[in-house]
Amino acid sequence: MEIDTDSLTTGQKVAAGAGIVTAIGAVLPWVDAGIVTVSGLDGDGVLTIIFGLVVLGLVLVREWGTVEMAATVVLGLMTTLIAGNVYGNLEDQAAQQILEAQAGIGLHLTLLGGLAMLGAGVYGYLKERNTSTRQAQAPRAR
């Protein structure tokens, strides 16, 4: 299956890249506590990898319409909230001196991917939603 990336809009390209970054971030370490590291897949990273792959699938398989843009926003928001919650838990643990834990590269990538998904969906809705409708309604040359 060959994908024509030239036909993708800016919002689609950002959403697809964000989905990939989120999926990669989910399998990398989210928490580094000295000699112990915790992968995202040991917790909520299972959800974020699904969210990232769903967004990637929406871009590659479906027409980039209002529903797909809204789904990208919702999944990006959920991913961002999950990553933010983990960051918050790390700060709580540090304040209580339970564990000296730091955010790992996977958590940073997951947050970045979630924010990018959110941004791509909003950008698509604000700038691109009428473009795909006009292209679909345009008469075809014979």
Score class of each variant (00 low, 15 high):
residue 80 T to S: 13
residue 34 G to W: 07
residue 83 A to R: 00
residue 50 I to K: 01
residue 57 G to D: 00
residue 25 G to P: 07
residue 102 Q to L: 12
residue 123 Y to S: 11
residue 116 A to Y: 00
residue 124 G to M: 08
residue 21 V to D: 04
residue 131 T to E: 15
residue 70 A to K: 13
residue 94 A to P: 06
residue 135 Q to T: 13
residue 46 V to Y: 10
residue 98 I to K: 14
residue 92 D to K: 14
residue 27 V to K: 08
residue 57 G to N: 05
residue 57 G to C: 06
residue 68 E to Q: 15
residue 87 Y to K: 09
residue 123 Y to I: 09
residue 65 G to M: 04
residue 110 T to E: 08
residue 85 N to S: 14
residue 111 L to K: 05
residue 127 K to W: 10
residue 58 L to F: 11
residue 132 S to R: 14
residue 31 V to H: 10
residue 80 T to P: 01
residue 73 V to N: 02
residue 122 V to M: 04
residue 41 L to C: 07
residue 94 A to K: 15
residue 122 V to Y: 01
residue 48 T to F: 01
residue 64 W to S: 06
residue 96 Q to S: 15
residue 65 G to W: 02
residue 66 T to M: 12
residue 92 D to M: 13
residue 127 K to V: 12
residue 115 L to Q: 05
residue 61 V to C: 07
residue 77 L to K: 02
residue 107 L to V: 08
residue 55 V to Y: 03
residue 87 Y to C: 04
residue 90 L to D: 07
residue 105 I to V: 15
residue 39 S to I: 04
residue 96 Q to D: 15
residue 22 T to C: 02
residue 83 A to N: 03
residue 123 Y to L: 13
residue 122 V to K: 02
residue 49 I to M: 09
residue 25 G to E: 05
residue 84 G to H: 01
residue 134 R to P: 00
residue 36 V to W: 13
residue 66 T to F: 10
residue 77 L to W: 07
residue 92 D to F: 12
residue 119 G to A: 05
residue 74 V to N: 02
residue 34 G to I: 05
residue 53 L to Y: 04
residue 74 V to H: 02
residue 58 L to R: 11
residue 127 K to L: 10
residue 109 L to I: 03
residue 118 L to V: 06
residue 79 T to L: 07
residue 104 G to P: 07
residue 103 A to G: 15
residue 51 F to T: 10
residue 116 A to F: 08
residue 89 N to I: 12
residue 55 V to I: 11
residue 99 L to H: 10
residue 112 L to C: 11
residue 65 G to R: 11
residue 28 L to D: 08
residue 74 V to F: 07
residue 61 V to E: 11
residue 30 W to L: 04
residue 44 D to Q: 12
residue 107 L to Y: 09
residue 27 V to I: 15
residue 116 A to W: 00
